[in-house]
């Protein structure tokens, strides 16, 4: 375990999570969440768990994003206040 890159990844993860929650545009939130999943996969690989990282990169960053975008295209794009 390398402290520098891990702390860097975790700090960006916190920022991305807050940004995804705050964002009113759900499409923007989905893309931010995709980036969150990619960094989460990096963190898993960093923590010596490449299997979980593989799943996170394939499902979290790939399929889930497409399904969220399809759901947005079926409903409203902007979050109601």
């Amino acid at each position: 375990m390398i402290w520098g890159p891990d702390l860097f990844i975790l700090a960006i993860l916190v920022v991305l999570a807050i940004a995804a929650v705050i964002s009113r545009d759900l499409l923007v939130a989905t893309v931010i969440f995709s980036g969150y999943s990619l960094l989460m996969a990096l963190a898993y690989v960093q923590l010596n768990s490449p299997d979980v990282g593989f799943t996170e990169a394939a499902v979290g960053a790939g399929v889930t994003t497409v399904l969220f975008i399809l759901a947005i295209s079926r409903t409203a794009r902007m979050e109601e206040a």
Partner: peptide, 14 residues
């Protein structure tokens, strides 16, 4: 190596 049935299925589906 890392991987398996579930991951491969997701990749082919993507």
């Amino acid at each position: 190596s890392p991987g398996g049935g579930f991951q491969a299925g997701v990749i082919i589906a993507s």
